[in-house]
Amino acid sequence: MSVTEIRFAGFGGQGVIMMATVIGKAACIFENGYSTMTQAFGPEARGGAASAQVVLSDQPVLYPYVTEPNILVVMAQEAYTKFSPEVRSDGILIVETDLVRVTTAVKPGVRVYGVPATRLAEQLGKKMVLNIVMTGFFTAVTGLLAAESVRNAVLDSVPAHSKDLNLRAFEAGFAYGQKVLEGSVTDLATV
């Protein structure tokens, strides 16, 4: 049985929950997998830190929460500090490079990928779609789900009037991810 635990974390308003919803939906509706999405509820979910967890599996998911993520996506420094020590040593860390400085040493073996998702979204004319840029990037660098499945999940999750913009956001993030994999982009903000 193959289980993948993913945590998405950032600020309230960045669309962290939407990212988790799109990935969860892509896996269980547009592919034949199972997925369970949970989110942090409570005062922390308003304004400050926001986080969502998705467990993907080829079998029905039993334990609903993420304990040791295979993949961590962070879009805020605070979220990075809080969650980066959790990532498995064979896992993947994905950061928003303009918002997160990879300051502390992550476990050896963790693959780190970065994308300036907010900047790319701004170039498309709307900062709001940074989460879908990140979703496209996630799809490219993890290879976890077929691009077509995630694309369909994006279209299924956003309002009709913004489908085109979100699709362009997805493609921008996806293309950036492919470039990162090829090694033609390396602007990870590390110290």
Partner: peptide, 10 residues
């Protein structure tokens, strides 16, 4: 329970 209520699945 809260977990089942706030858990999203197919």
């Amino acid at each position: 329970d809260e977990c089942v209520g706030h858990m999203t699945e197919k």
